[in-house]
């Protein structure tokens, strides 16, 4: 599904290298987790994959089902099935959450040459999905993320994911700022979407989330590289010992 080879990225405005040769292969239907100290480049990786401006790719490739992602506009990547649940969801005053979602769903359908979803079908679908995430009608009406609590913002990200049904889902610290109940809701939302045609890349600091969303592979990222990969036990090792041992191992 997602194949990243020796990806090297620096900031556009500054002479600062952030990703220094990332290699990652995610098969269809699998769940991969990335853990790593703050500032190691996890968010940068997720942004570069979804097409945010401000970065310069100086080497390597990233493909989704064989298509070079790095040549595409963000909207084209989204229509292909790439989705990023933001670490910091953006507030958009003046745009209703519902309008936002309907526009997104239909924009993607249009780009894929599919018919738009009727207003009635859309409403039915969003009501059902919102209910499982405990998102009330008021949250759907309000401007996108404006005045939402941290937990509401994260649940709103998962709602978008559920509505858009992407094939490659990247979750950037979706668990940070969530209480236990919200974490459960979010995890259930993610697990409900697990499918053999859909893959996940879960960026997190905590084993807690991975108790709910069981990963197939865990990677440790440090200083712009993936320094170690392994099974779920790697996350437990991090939880118990921190990153220090792993970092010294490779140093």
């Amino acid at each position: 599904m997602l194949n990243i080879k020796d990806l090297r990225v620096e900031l556009e405005d500054e002479d600062k290298k952030i990703l220094k040769g990332v290699n990652l292969d995610i098969e269809a239907g699998s769940v991969h987790a990335i853990m790593g100290p703050n500032g190691s480049g996890k968010s940068t990786l997720s942004y570069v994959l979804s097409g945010r401006a401000g970065y310069r790719v100086t080497g390597g490739t990233a493909t989704l089902d064989g298509v070079n992602l790095l040549d595409l506009d963000p909207e084209e990547r989204a229509a292909m099935g790439m989705f990023l649940a933001f670490q910091y969801p953006v507030e958009i005053p003046g745009v209703g959450n519902m309008t936002f979602l309907r526009t997104a769903v239909n924009s993607q359908r249009k780009q894929r040459g599919e018919d738009e979803m009727s207003a009635g079908d859309f409403l039915k679908l969003i009501r059902a999905k919102a209910k499982t995430l405990k998102i009330d009608a008021d949250m759907l009406k309000r401007p996108v993320n404006v005045g939402f609590s941290g937990g509401e913002k994260k649940r709103n990200e998962i709602l978008q994911m559920a509505m858009l049904e992407p094939k490659m889902c990247i979750l950037d610290e979706t668990d940070s700022g969530l209480d236990v109940d919200a974490m459960k809701l979010v995890s259930e939302g993610v697990n409900a979407l697990r499918d053999k045609g859909r893959s996940f890349l879960v960026i997190t600091h905590y084993q807690r989330l991975l108790d709910h969303i069981k990963p197939d592979v865990v990677h440790i990222m440090a200083n712009g590289r993936i320094i170690k990969s392994g099974g779920p036990e790697l996350a437990i090792e991090v939880e118990n010992n921190g990153y220090a041992d792993l970092l010294s191992e490779v140093a």
Binding site: G51, R52, V90, V95, T103
Partner: peptide, 29 residues
């Protein structure tokens, strides 16, 4: 707002309609 524009685009809304949506939102008040 570039952040908002990217957020919309990352959800599949092309840059033109996304800009329009933000422009209308700006005028909404």
């Amino acid at each position: 707002d570039e952040e908002a524009l990217f957020y919309l685009r990352s959800r599949g809304v092309p840059v033109g309609p996304a800009t329009d949506l933000l422009t209308l939102a700006f005028l909404a008040e």
